[in-house]
């Protein structure tokens, strides 16, 4: 019977003690703890979301980077191709120019050689004529040394004239 016969005093003190615990904790402990937990949970939630967003952004950035890189590569290839073309063109042009120059030089040389040759020929002709005249002079001088010969020749010339 003792076990199930609660004392009035204990009920009174228990109500007082539990009421005090309830009142004090409700006023000074639970709101702080509940609020702190809520704040921290929200903070963690936000941090996780932010991390997710950052991850997403990084992925996007990576994709952008890749696209950019691809574009840059293409541009580079294009530039290289153009440069190659330009080089080829320049080479071709310079080759043609060089050929033309060479042709011109050769032509010039040919003209000059012709001129030189002509001059040389004239010179030779003149020399030959001079030498021939000199030889003929010398021959005549030899032939006409004696007076009889001269006389005979003059006679012949007169004779030719008389016949006319």
């Amino acid at each position: 019977m003792e076990l199930v016969n609660p004392g009035l005093g204990l009920i009174f003190w228990m109500t007082l003690a539990f009421g005090a615990v309830f009142y004090i904790l409700k006023k000074f402990a639970w709101p702080i703890i509940i609020q702190a937990l809520k704040d921290r949970e929200r903070h963690i939630e936000e941090a996780l979301q932010a991390a997710d967003r950052a991850h997403e952004e990084m992925k996007k950035m990576q994709l952008d980077n890749e696209a950019l890189l691809k574009k840059a590569k293409e541009e580079r290839d294009q530039i290289m191709q153009e440069a190659r073309k330009l080089r080829d063109k320049m080479l071709e042009e310079s080759r043609i120019k060089a050929n033309e120059e060479a042709d011109r030089i050769v032509e010039n040389a040919k003209v000059r050689i012709e001129n030189e040759r002509k001059a040389a020929m004239t010179d030779i002709k003149n020399q030959i004529a001079k030498i021939s005249i000199e030889i003929a002079e010398m021959v005549l001088r030899e032939k006409m040394k004696s007076t009889e010969t001269q006389k005979a020749y003059i006679d012949k010339l007169i004779e030719d004239r008389q016949l006319n």
Partner: peptide, 24 residues
């Protein structure tokens, strides 16, 4: 009418004080 501070009454008060102290 018996409002004596019995063994359990005192214990409840002591334990309540401990609980208040811990949670504060």
């Amino acid at each position: 009418i018996d409002l004596s501070l019995t063994k359990n009454s005192l214990a409840v008060i002591i334990y309540s004080a401990i609980i208040i102290f811990i949670f504060l």
